[in-house]
């Protein structure tokens, strides 16, 4: 196992060569913000919150999808990064109908926490107020597209860990939606095993367990990582 040495926020860090900047930073106690990244799933570099500055290049790097390199000098926070992250969050809040006060995930929501972390006290962009559906045809779970941020964690959890590939994305741009099977009601899905991994993966209140009311939807993120470790590393301890 080769070791790379790099600098993260001025701190010398040693990391395994296969590690990403995000993982290396976290092991060094630096928590880079991210919404689409979750332990145990393939990083996709989609939310762009984990962008970091690298000395010697103007190009911002997605920490979740960039491998460490010897001698890298990484800055994970700067006024520019902070402002960009705040804008990304505001874009998300303006894009769909996120109403924390009446959301099942209130107080347990990664989007909400991220807004708090970045001091987002209001949204400077125009709210789009799209008309979106809620699918509660599944007997245990539901999906509220008003709260979906298209992080595709559900898609990846379902495909990579459960192997069912019930979830996917249809449409493009602002019209993109996560869908079940060939855009059928979730309850009609032939492939869904009702394993609930998507429910654990969802960062917001979009995918929820039915019967949970405001602020009741808590999740166990470690479940996904546990399953991956168990399968790949044969580690059965939590």
């Amino acid at each position: 196992m080769a070791i790379k040495t790099l600098t993260i926020d001025g701190q010398l860090v040693s990391a395994r060569e296969e590690d990403t900047i995000l993982v290396a930073a976290r092991e060094a106690g630096v928590n880079i913000p991210a919404l689409c990244y979750v332990d145990g799933l393939t990083p996709v570099g989609a939310c762009r919150l984990c962008l970091v500055e690298q000395q010697g290049t103007n190009r911002l790097q997605a920490a979740c999808a960039t491998k460490v390199q010897e001698g890298m000098e990484i800055v994970t926070n700067s006024p520019r990064l902070h402002e960009y992250r705040k804008m990304i969050l505001e874009l998300l809040f303006a894009e769909r109908n996120h109403i924390c006060a009446v959301c099942v995930a209130n107080n347990h929501c990664e989007l909400q926490d991220m807004a708090v972390r970045h001091g987002m006290d209001h949204v400077r962009f125009e709210y789009l107020y799209p008309q979106l559906s809620v699918d509660v045809s599944h007997e245990q779970f539901g999906i509220d597209h008003n709260r979906c941020i298209l992080c595709t964690r559900c898609v990846r959890a379902c495909h990579e860990i459960e192997g069912a590939h019930t979830w996917d994305v249809s449409g493009r741009g602002v019209r993109a939606r996560v869908i079940t099977d060939m855009n059928q009601p979730w309850g009609d899905s032939d492939t869904c095993t009702s394993c609930g991994k998507c429910v654990q993966a969802c960062p917001t209140g979009a995918i929820f367990r039915q019967g949970s009311t405001v602020a009741e939807m808590e999740r166990d993120r470690s479940m996904l990582q546990f399953l991956v470790n168990a399968r790949e590393k044969k580690q059965w301890n939590v």
Partner: peptide, 16 residues
């Protein structure tokens, strides 16, 4: 119209 919708800046930023 042509943004794929994967990353937020392009998907939601172009709309704004």
């Amino acid at each position: 119209d042509e943004s794929c919708g994967k990353c937020i800046p392009c998907r939601a930023g172009t709309v704004q």
